[in-house]
Design a protein around this nucleic acid. Sequence first.
DNA 1: AACAGTTTCAAGTCTACACAAATTGGAATT
DNA 2: AATTCCAATTTGTGTAGACTTGAAACTGTT
Lengths: 234, 234
Amino acid sequence: MTQSSDTTSYKDIKQTVLDRIRSGAWPPDALLPSEQELAVEFSCTRTTVNRAMRELAEEGYLERRRKAGTRVLSAPQRQARFTIPLVRDEVGALGGTYRYALVSTETGLAPEWLAARLALRPGQTAAHVRCMHYSTNTPFQFEDRWIIVDSVPQVEQADFTSVGPNEWLIQTVPFTNVELTFLASRADETVAGFLDLPKDEPVFTAERITWLQGQPVTFAKMYFAAGYRMTTQF
Amino acid sequence: MTQSSDTTSYKDIKQTVLDRIRSGAWPPDALLPSEQELAVEFSCTRTTVNRAMRELAEEGYLERRRKAGTRVLSAPQRQARFTIPLVRDEVGALGGTYRYALVSTETGLAPEWLAARLALRPGQTAAHVRCMHYSTNTPFQFEDRWIIVDSVPQVEQADFTSVGPNEWLIQTVPFTNVELTFLASRADETVAGFLDLPKDEPVFTAERITWLQGQPVTFAKMYFAAGYRMTTQF
DNA sequence: AACAGTTTCAAGTCTACACAAATTGGAATT
DNA sequence: AATTCCAATTTGTGTAGACTTGAAACTGTT
């Protein structure tokens, strides 16, 4: 059989199911017909129904369990997806000209709070890199990053004067797990200075921890300039 | 044919491809073999390869174009997925006892800034609901919400003394589009009072706009108590 | 009534194949 | 040399059918 415009595609099914959920025809907790039955209704194969329902479940609308069937989630656990761009790209997308500047680098014993946070072994060393990202010469982000030397030995030879540590890391080491945290912090002397705002000002802050197969790779705190908004649509 | 443990599943293929990307065997921008070729290599059907590659593309590792083929994304545009729970569930997950309290409700002409933000027609009215969410009697979140009466006429009869406007809305109106923004704001007199913290303190803030098929439904500002962290792992 | 074993059903995944749609690259034409 | 057109290639999506897996429901036993 062909799938010309008269055929029901998995997208059509998704839309129809969504409409039924939204219209209340299939209210929360309702048990949906089985894939087999839906396949008959939409006159397509179960494969096609399966794809539609699987995706709707991934998107947080449905809950599926073998034998138990498919039901509508009462509180749609919809998830916001934030695409985390490179600062360079983000600045570009906002219409600015990107500029990078290294602030400081030094390597030494990881401070206690970092060792605790990343569960480091005693005596492990870390490279501490601080740098600035500008958008058309106004401060955009202050980055305060630690890179675990044992996990990334190449960092000892790295030169961060023209390439930021983030871009360098992406090119150099892969990662398997990330923990990303957003919070509001208060600008201390240093952050206020670099971001060109009054001390104690609220600063949108992102913390990012990256692992490679259980090995901690890097910890980064990113302080954003005043008025920064992290937005997503879905 | 059966798919017992000797068969290659789409998950195996995903893992293998990821390993090759991470090991550098398939570096950024590299053009991958076609699905046909991979199917031969993994001795499975193209359907199975297709599913693996499609999912990897959705997850931001690959870029696929018909005829052009599949290539490795240089800067893996990995996206963070935040599951946005109900405040009640979030408090529960953190081990607290949830309590809700209505602060104020009033309905009237939408203020100018709101009309501008939601592209309201002149003269549209909105219900303004302010409420508090507590975790074991300590302030957790202050919610400041507007609900567009034209889009949700039932709001005129709603009673928010025991059920929060968010939970009420979820039960009452569906939505099709959401814009979610995180930012750091400064606690004004009101917010500081409700969250029991000093004035001008940094406050992690979420703004959420919800539409139903182009119609604005609600605008909410949610101010979180001191020390709040929005975290995700991926 | 409680438990263990079995059946049954719905989703999960795979095979094998076909046609669709996009886009590239080269051939033919201007 | 530039442009238009066409064929080949690769991903996208569908059909049809089968086996697998997990969990619910039923069964008989203690």
